[in-house]
Write a protein that binds this DNA or RNA. Structure first.
Length: 504
DNA sequence: GTTTAATCGCGATGCGGCTC
DNA sequence: GAGCCGCATCGCGATTAAAC
């Protein structure tokens, strides 16, 4: 795919202008000539876009506001960007998360309309002036408390004070940004800990958080590192927010990237190992287990697949190189490619024997490690490792993959004949040739058997998923019935009250 | 510099509605 | 019922940017 051409604000503005002039024109349908006209008009203004692209862009623009999950929150408000959120922001539309059930949420409530237009500073590169202000605020507050023997205020309140002080100097820093800066740099810089002794004591029972999950522990560049103790035990809603629901924290903050905790990572990986694509029951389960949003779970899967694909490509290259180096390769390039595993959709069942025209770009592992290994024609001597995070559990790990095919999409071993081996002429012994042929045929039989097993497993798993979906539907149905009953009762009560009022 | 969360545009696919 | 169309959704490659 070539480089994508992004929409710039001028271009979007022009599109909006053109479309808003056509209020009464039927714009439905991507093949509507209207879009051709728009494309022509855009071209007149120097914007080269195809009608279809304009249509899609417009449909996205007019979609109802979606939940903010962009890391480019306020920080990029002043940049020329083309994200829909920002486009809406330009029009003064503010998206609300709507979840404000905890004090943490209240703390991170989306800023007011007025705040939305403040030039928020982001990042941890604070100027000396800024950090001095923060330090003065924090220190004077704690000193005052000590002096007057007052109950120490919470960290959240301190961040607010700092924010206000900065604002007085036309510096706009969000509370999460202040918290992060102080935690990571400020405390050390001024050698001043704003936390109460109690909190520090609690924090000293630090936990080890491994970025990238447990499998990252042994990986270069991903050594387990002990997080600053202050990070381990929340002392305030700010910290609590970061640690317990970092996804929403990020959502509200806009400039802090969410880090999936090792626990969340493990939970995700367990499911991912079973099948590297998501389906509803799994998303629901993960949502509940990890506390991450659907979007984040999807993203995590997406990125994980990308990581795996990258690793798989590297491995493939290495393998090819190795085989090139060997004088009598078992499989030539075509053979290796034929190991590419193809993902089939439900509708493909029955057609799966079609010969694969183009080998899959990447190895997938929807069928679990054992099958995956077998899919590699038994050539894979040891569990395939995709980067730091092996998708293959250790032998003694409980295999989550025995019934692990979560969808009908299956790994499809190619039934293409394995290419003939290069039998050296010097050993043109009939027995050797026959043995080689026998081996080849055995491989075919093996591949067919495996495919059969895979389909069986895939169907079983799909049924399992379907059962789960059905159960969920029944639960919803019961919920609906209960709601109906409540409504009926309420209606009756209203009728009674009304008749009583009438009589009265 | 590397890793990883997140974004973008685009194409593929599935599904529902409509017409024949 | 087959075929077409519009639309929504999902996954991908490429990319950006925060975090380390």
């Amino acid at each position: 795919m070539g480089k994508v051409k992004r929409w710039h604000s001028e271009e979007i503005a022009k599109l909006k202008e053109i479309c808003s002039r056509q209020e009464h024109v039927d714009i439905r349908g991507k093949n509507n000539p209207f879009w051709e006209k728009v494309a022509d008009e855009m071209e007149e203004h120097g914007f080269d876009r195809q009608a279809n692209a304009i249509h899609v862009k417009w449909m996205r623009l007019i979609q109802p506001p979606r939940m903010k999950s962009s890391k480019k929150g306020q920080s990029n408000r002043w940049d020329s960007s083309d994200t829909e959120d920002e486009e809406r922001d330009e029009e003064g539309i503010v998206d609300f998360d709507g979840e404000t059930d905890t004090k943490s949420d209240v703390l991170f409530q989306i800023e007011s309309r007025e705040d939305a237009f403040k030039p928020w500073a982001t990042g941890s590169n604070w100027s000396d002036e800024e950090s001095d202000i923060a330090y003065q605020c924090i220190k004077s507050q704690r000193d005052k408390e000590k002096e007057l023997k007052l109950e120490p205020i919470t960290a959240d309140q301190i961040w607010r004070i700092v924010a206000k002080a900065l604002e007085q100097r036309q510096i706009y820093r969000k509370i999460p940004n202040i918290y992060i800066y102080w935690k990571n740099k400020g405390r050390e810089k001024y050698n001043f800990d704003e936390r109460t002794p109690d909190t520090i004591e609690k924090s000293s029972r630090g936990i080890v958080r491994v970025r990238g999950g447990k499998s990252a522990q042994n990986s270069p560049g991903h050594a387990a590192h002990k997080i600053d103790p202050c990070n381990s035990t929340p002392q305030s809603s700010t910290e609590e927010y970061f640690q317990q629901n970092n996804s929403r924290a990020e959502t509200a903050m806009g400039d802090v990237q969410v880090q999936v905790t090792s626990q969340q990572h493990d939970l995700l990986m367990i499911e991912y190992t079973k099948y590297n694509h998501l389906d509803n029951p799994v998303v629901n389960k993960l949502e509940e287990d990890t506390g991450l949003s659907r979007e984040q779970i999807k993203l995590w899967y997406r990125n994980q697949r990308a990581i795996d694909a990258k690793e798989a490509d590297i491995q493939k290259e290495v393998k090819l190189q190795t085989e090139k180096d060997l004088s009598t390769p078992i499989l030539d390039e075509t053979g290796v490619q034929s190991m590419g595993l193809k993902r089939y959709r439900v509708s493909d069942i029955g057609y799966h024997l079609q010969e694969e025209e183009n080998p899959a770009k990447r190895a997938r592992h929807s069928l679990g490690p054992e099958i995956l290994m077998k899919n590699h024609g038994g050539i894979l001597e040891k569990p395939e490792t995709f980067g730091r995070r092996s998708i293959i559990p250790e032998p003694n790990e409980p295999s989550a993959n025995d019934v692990a095919i979560s969808t009908i999409e299956v790994q499809q071993p190619s039934l293409k004949s394995a290419p003939q081996r290069n039998i050296p002429d010097s050993t043109s012994d009939v027995t050797t040739v026959m043995k080689a042929n026998r081996e080849m045929e055995q491989q075919k039989v093996h591949a067919a058997e495996e495919e059969y097993k895979q389909l069986e497993l895939a169907i079983a798993a799909h049924k399992e998923r379907a059962d789960l979906e059905l159960k969920a539907a029944h639960a919803k149905e019961r919920e609906l019935t209960a709601q109906l009953e409540i409504r009926e009762k309420a209606t009756k009560r209203i009728a009674m009250i009304e008749s009583f009022l009438d009589d009265y």
